[in-house]
Amino acid sequence: MSNEWPLWEVFIRGQHGMSHRHVGSLHAPDAEMAIKNARDVYTRRNEGVSIWVVEAANIAASSPTEKGPLYDPSRSKVYRHPTFFDIPDEVGAM
């Protein structure tokens, strides 16, 4: 039972002009087969126009325990949003 095919993460571009989005994963011996399998598993109903595959072992991810230090600081920086600034109506669209 050893010698298991590695796991690949699959990203699909749904339509022209959109970014690729993670849709799921699958096992395959190499990238070429991973793309072929992804086509069969994830695009049977015109779900995509382009496929990326990345071996799961090559993905680095942030850790859930770092949630606070990573994302909390941006909460207080409300001035980064356009709605922070009141522009008088007379000025028109901005």
Binding site: E4, L7, S25
Partner: peptide
């Protein structure tokens, strides 16, 4: 395909497909 989606979901819990 349904089998594959589900096996992959189970694998995220630390069990291998094989």
């Amino acid at each position: 395909g349904h089998g594959l989606y589900l096996y992959c979901a189970a694998e995220t819990l630390g069990v291998s497909r094989d």
